[in-house]
Amino acid sequence: MSDDEQTPSTTGGPAGGPTGGTPAGPQPEEIRFFGTSWVDHSGTYTLRRIGLAVGSLAAAVAACFVLRFAYQGLAIANVGGIVNMLVVLMFAVCSAIAFRKTWEGFGRRPTDPAREESLRSLKAIGFIGSLLAYCARCFVEAPGEKLRRAEYDTARAQYEKRRGTRTGNPAARKKPKRR
């Protein structure tokens, strides 16, 4: 076998049963920057939330400075008041839409992926709104934690329900004693 190929695992896995450290049942989905620490708020969860809030706010402030320099460039170029107003209006509207769509994305999965894809460029223009949504959400929870927690709890409840209603292997049952 070459270095690129993986050696077969003898410890188990999806086909070989549960591994030693992995509990049975559904596993929590990872959140960017948090991994699965959002499940029990373990480790450096709080510090990560604070760091993400500060980092996204700092990035939004830096982006505002960059946009200010771009606006000053338009003023130096003397393109006219209507163009300046349109640029400011465009960034304000795009940022508001990006904030709203990002905030909604923390609470539910998109119903129409094609529409989300078509809004990608608008969200890129309004990136300041997305950064501010991340900052604001970090004060409440990890971005997307509520959605993933609801999905994980539902999956765990369904797993426990299925697991509890099983009767087991009929061949392994003890036969009742006859009198």
Rank of each mutant, 00 (worst) to 15 (best):
D3K: 13
D4V: 04
E5F: 11
T7G: 02
T10R: 15
T10K: 14
G12I: 00
G12N: 02
P14K: 14
G16Q: 00
G17Y: 11
T19N: 06
T19D: 01
A24F: 04
G25R: 08
P26I: 01
Q27V: 00
P28C: 04
P28L: 03
E29Q: 11
E29W: 05
E29G: 00
E30T: 07
I31M: 03
F34N: 09
T36G: 08
G43F: 04
Y45N: 00
Y45M: 02
T46P: 08
R49G: 05
R49I: 01
L52K: 02
L52P: 07
G55L: 06
S56N: 14
L57I: 05
A59Y: 12
A59V: 10
V61Q: 09
V61D: 06
A63P: 02
C64E: 09
C64I: 08
F65E: 10
V66M: 11
L67N: 14
R68G: 04
G73P: 06
V79Q: 05
G80V: 05
I82M: 14
M85Q: 13
M85F: 11
L86Q: 12
V87T: 03
V88C: 01
F91A: 01
A92G: 13
A92N: 07
V93E: 06
C94T: 15
S95R: 06
S95H: 07
S95E: 05
I97P: 05
I97R: 10
I97Y: 13
A98R: 08
A98V: 01
E104L: 14
G105V: 00
G107T: 09
R108S: 10
R108K: 15
A114I: 03
E116S: 08
E117H: 14
E117D: 12
E117S: 10
R120M: 02
L122A: 06
A124F: 11
A124W: 11
I125H: 03
F127C: 00
I128S: 03
G129E: 06
L131M: 05
L131C: 00
L132S: 06
A133E: 01
C135R: 04
A136H: 14
F139M: 13
F139C: 11
F139L: 15
A142D: 06
E145K: 05
R148D: 07
A150P: 07
E151R: 15
Y152I: 01
Y152T: 00
R156N: 09
R162G: 10
R166P: 00
T167E: 13
A171E: 15
A171V: 11
R173L: 08
K174M: 11
K174Q: 11
